[in-house]
Amino acid sequence: MNSPPKPTPAELEMLRLLYELGPATAKQVHAAALAARPELTYANVLRQLQVMHGKGIVTRDESARAHVYAPAQEQASIQTSLLKDLIQKAFAGSGKALVLAALRGGHVTARERAEISALLGEDRLPD
């Protein structure tokens, strides 16, 4: 079985909301999206979810009057796929270059840096 296509930035936004909410109707996703994007209409959210369903990025439960949407893949799986793509395209395949860029670029908080150091010191980084 082929994996779904890589989500667009707009689709990633919808996925992020679905990961936070759990399975949800378009109305629930729209309500959650309004905090960050008050200009976003219900019709746009519904259409985006329908397109994502057509692409296989989300599943749709049609057993109730209001369809319930959920991500087709676990969040970690999508993140891993996007990260692999980013490492290949932007860092010539070097995970080390990605990590160093994140550490140098101010994208890691002091607390996160301490957690990373502890993991490295214990040599127990997750696979």
Rank of each mutant, 00 (worst) to 15 (best):
Y19S: 08
S3T: 10
A10N: 13
Q73G: 00
L17F: 03
I57C: 08
K6I: 13
Q73S: 12
L21W: 03
T59D: 06
Q28R: 14
A118N: 07
V51I: 12
R47K: 09
D127K: 14
R37L: 13
V51Q: 02
L40K: 15
A36C: 09
L18W: 02
I116A: 15
S77G: 00
A36V: 11
A118V: 03
G93F: 07
P38G: 10
L98C: 11
A102T: 06
L34F: 04
K55G: 02
M1F: 00
P7R: 03
R113C: 03
E74S: 02
V68K: 08
P38I: 11
L100C: 03
A90F: 00
N44Y: 14
V99H: 01
H53E: 13
S117T: 06
R111E: 15
L21D: 04
A35C: 01
G106F: 07
E11F: 09
P9W: 10
M14T: 03
G106H: 10
R47W: 00
S117A: 12
Q28T: 10
A118S: 09
K6Q: 07
A118R: 14
L12F: 03
K6R: 12
K84R: 12
G121F: 04
G93P: 05
L82V: 02
T59V: 07
P23H: 06
G22E: 07
L125T: 09
D123H: 07
A10V: 12
L103Y: 10
S63V: 08
A118H: 11
Q88N: 07
E13V: 13
G93T: 04
H67R: 04
M52P: 00
M52E: 01
S63T: 15
R111V: 11
R47D: 03
E39G: 08
Q88H: 03
N44F: 10
H107F: 15
V99L: 15
A76Q: 04
T41E: 11
A101D: 13
K96E: 14
A31H: 05
S3Q: 09
T41C: 06
R60T: 01
A35Y: 09
A36S: 15
S117C: 05
A110D: 15
P126I: 05
Q79E: 14
N2T: 08
L82H: 00
E11S: 04
A66M: 04
K27A: 13
A24S: 14
R113N: 04
Y19N: 06
S81Y: 00
E122H: 09
S63R: 15
K89C: 01
A32E: 14
A110M: 11
K6D: 11
P71S: 04
M1Q: 01
G54S: 01
L120Y: 09
A31V: 10
Q50V: 02
E74G: 11
R16K: 11
L17M: 12
E39P: 00
K89N: 08
R16W: 03
Q50W: 00
R65A: 14
I78V: 15
H53W: 02
L125K: 06
A64F: 13
R16E: 12
V58D: 10
Q73Y: 02
A26W: 00
Q75K: 15
L119G: 10
Y42E: 11
